[in-house]
Amino acid sequence: MSNWTHIVGHQWAVEMLANGLVNDRLGHAYLITGPEQVGKTTLARTFAQALNCEASEPERPCGHCRPCKLIAIDRHPDVKLITPELSGRGKLTLKIETIRQLQQDLNLSAYEARYKVAILERFDAATVGAANAFLKTLEEPPGKVVLLLTATDADMLLPTIASRCRTLNLRPLPTDLIEQSLATRWQVPAEKAMLLAHLADGRLGWAIQAAEDETILQTRTEQITHLHDALAGRRVQRFALADKLARQPDTLPNLLKTWLSWWRDLTLLNQRQGQSISLMLTNMDEIERLEPLATAWSEQQITASLNQTNLALWQLERNANTRLVLENLLLVYPFPKLV
């Protein structure tokens, strides 16, 4: 088991896969579900290494042999990583042509591996045609082939696809585990590790990416600044901000998700006044702003703002008028009290 230790958390899933390998009770298809960047592909890739590692049990995967090294960088000829393509409006799509090409590859003999493996990321992005085409491979898989599908939710797949896979549902990781891992494995400074762990919402992959890419936190700072500007402004300033933000529609989903997390924190503080809940917050660096607002605004004001932010996200996903959605949202947010 020790050679799976670079996987943080998800111990039950690791044990299930490792035991299946040791006891020669492998399935031909696995569906790994869970939130984005929670570790689904990392688990799938490590399992592919274990399947083809040249070391003996219980050392697999060793991480040092040729198959392990090639699989780690997605360069092994017998281990395919299939990812959806970005189509119009930035939507991810897994096309039937990609599935048919994969099926041809899987029907060929392996070059050097013990098992041919296909890792299909975000299979919930597959078109109906692609999913139906892949169903034949799930029903009649070639010998010595293991299929590893990932998706955010099994319910987003065709029932006939999910029912033919062994499902592993990965859950968000505890905040303290992410914080500890960032500090010890990735040498992230303690204060930054704590902030990223709270912002990560259980997604270690996001936290690692944000630790390595400064622009992620910079973007969040800009998003929070826009929110503060809105809350400090009167109607004219808010309409001007709505106009400005509407000119950058691609940035709005992430911006509104950041705002949503801020309002959730405020809701938590408002409903649990007097209790020590600061460690449960997402936006730890905003607590000095949040605490006074939690008492200054009513529960109705805060709840209305939270719900309207959620509604705005839903409306934008359905191609509503961007500026109108933002104007309606900013008019619901509490206005500053006139002095």
Rank of each mutant, 00 (worst) to 15 (best):
T303P: 06
T41A: 07
V188D: 10
C68M: 01
I7D: 02
W263C: 00
L170E: 05
A207F: 08
T5A: 13
W263A: 02
V38Y: 00
D176Q: 13
E140M: 09
Q248G: 11
D74N: 01
L227E: 11
R264V: 05
A29Q: 10
K91L: 12
L199K: 04
C68S: 00
E212W: 09
C65F: 04
A154V: 09
N254M: 14
K95Y: 11
A246E: 04
L204W: 06
G205D: 01
W314P: 08
S56T: 15
I96M: 08
T295L: 14
L316M: 06
A125Q: 05
N270W: 13
Q271G: 14
L199P: 02
F335Q: 13
E85L: 10
S278E: 15
D153L: 11
K244C: 12
L138A: 07
P253E: 08
A131N: 03
T93A: 15
K244L: 12
I208E: 14
Q187P: 09
E317D: 04
L330K: 03
L138V: 06
D176N: 10
R89D: 10
D201P: 10
I96C: 05
T127A: 01
A50D: 03
N52Y: 03
A246R: 10
A211D: 12
A50G: 02
F335E: 14
R25G: 05
